[in-house]
């Protein structure tokens, strides 16, 4: 049969048969072996290791995340080929740092690892993007930017994704953002309705930007008249 060779999960030797976790302790318990390996490899960049409800969280120096993730991905003794999620947490206690969370899975070793990067209050909300290692990070990081305002340096196209580009109220998942938004309902509706639903030719995102002069006249006109705004 032609086609791809199937990648099998859990092919590493001597893995226990997977089973539903039972009686998981709140704290403590066996940590993911990758945590030790990370400590050995990266030393100071690994701040602490917690095991909470059976899941291993490794707090890292956020600025080093790309190196760490690249090693986890490439090294055959780890092979975290699968990026599950990129997200962030801001606590109600505003003095606590904002956490950026990466959830990784190793399909081969059947492991789950949580990386945490802390951004102390007052520091710029910026961490390196892991897009270079995982293409799946593209939209996840854009969403995180959209909701928290965290910039992922090195991301190829960091724009708002869920809200529209001119959204003026801020970053909704930050704790200082009120549940109903900052503006009155009428003002929110006015701003939303004044967006042009046909605006779809954004020069930055289309490769026709080079060929602008050759476009049909009407399209050129429309692009000139404010339809270059993305949303």
């Amino acid at each position: 049969m032609s086609g791809f060779t199937v990648i099998r999960a859990g092919t590493a030797p001597d893995l226990p048969t997977p089973a539903t976790p039972k009686r998981v302790p709140h704290r403590g318990g066996a940590a993911n072996p990758s945590a030790e390996a990370l400590k050995a490899r990266f030393g100071d960049a690994i701040r602490r290791v917690d095991v909470v409800w059976g899941e291993t969280s490794v707090t890292i120096d956020a600025a080093k995340v790309l190196d760490i993730v690249r090693w986890l991905h490439d090294d055959t003794s780890q092979s975290y080929e699968y990026l599950v999620d990129v997200t962030a947490v801001e606590f109600r206690d505003r003095a606590l740092p904002i956490e950026v969370i990466w959830h990784l899975r190793s399909i081969k070793y059947r492991r789950f690892l949580r990386l945490k990067g802390l951004i102390e209050k007052g520091n710029p909300l910026s961490v390196p993007s892991v897009w270079a290692v995982y293409k799946g990070a593209d939209w996840l990081e854009r969403e995180c930017y959209d909701m928290f305002g965290i910039t992922f340096t090195g991301h190829p196209d960091l724009r708002r994704i869920l809200l529209w580009e001119q959204y003026a109220e801020g970053f909704p998942l930050r704790k200082d953002f009120p549940l109903r938004g900052r503006f009155s309902r009428a003002e929110q509706l006015r701003q939303a309705l004044s967006a042009n639903p046909e605006a779809r030719y954004s020069m930055e995102e289309l490769s026709i930007a080079d060929a602008f002069a050759e476009l049909p006249l009407d399209m050129r006109e429309r692009i000139k008249h404010g339809e270059s705004t993305g949303e």
Binding site: L189, Q191, L193
Partner: peptide, 10 residues
């Protein structure tokens, strides 16, 4: 949602 409002109006 607000993002869809102009679409519905249109």
């Amino acid at each position: 949602p607000f993002k869809l409002a102009p679409v519905l109006r249109r």
